[in-house]
Amino acid sequence: MSAPTFLRRPNRVLSVYAILFLVALYFPILLIPLFSFNDSIYVRFPLEGFTTEWFGQLWDRQPVWDSLWASVKVGLPVSILSTTLGVLAARSITRDRVPGRSAVVTFIMLPLVIPTLIFGVALLALLSRLGVPLSLYTVAFGHLIVCLPFSVATLLPRFEGFDRSLEQASADLGENGWWTFWRVTFPLVMPGIVASLLLTFTISFDEFIMAFFLSGNETTLPIYLWTQLRFPQQFPSVLALASLLILFSLPLILIGMWISRLGLHENTTKGAKT
């Protein structure tokens, strides 16, 4: 839908506002890497010179590596599991006429809206009642609940984006459900799967609240960072760690978002051509 010319006339005030908005949005975040190279244990202006000392300090710290490893150990299975479950759920939501469909979707999406804190304490209550010791497994379970709605939300448009008749055609040409999935569905939702893997891994990797309530002795990176906040002399190395986290997750997110949307766009134009 293209608007007529008089509606498209550039609006200078709005353009300036947009720039200011973006600056305000990114400025606080960019301060973190900025100060992580500042040669002072105080986070203040004026800057006092360039150093990589804080990064060097991190490198030598075993707990950083331990918690990094813990985060990866949680994030990888969580992203794979939640994407797998998301594929199954998104498929049945879009393909089968299930009774109570919208109620089910709302239920799956609940963790997107309800504060994670409540999920955290509720899970904590459950686990302590059951006598399950807190560990990285419990953290992963918590993350699974946080990640599932994101997986489903990323995959749903994918499944909606291609026509049901393609799967019917596969069945018509003699393939059963299993082969139809691998020969038709999977290749067509592949970008969504990649996006879901990347996004859920990042979410799990960055997640704080669930890990805060459900961690045992081993802690993930965000929890380590949180504990270091208490020590003012650690502030620069916390900044360095935070910079690394941002540096690490940004590309994953960018690729994830790009893939998920780019593919969709392509698909719709293709659909329009037929």
Partner: peptide, 21 residues
Amino acid sequence: ILITLPFWISYLLRVFAWRVI
């Protein structure tokens, strides 16, 4: 994507950034 990107950065870090400010 440019506008929604920061949302995906760790919430903890975004809050932390304001502590810096």
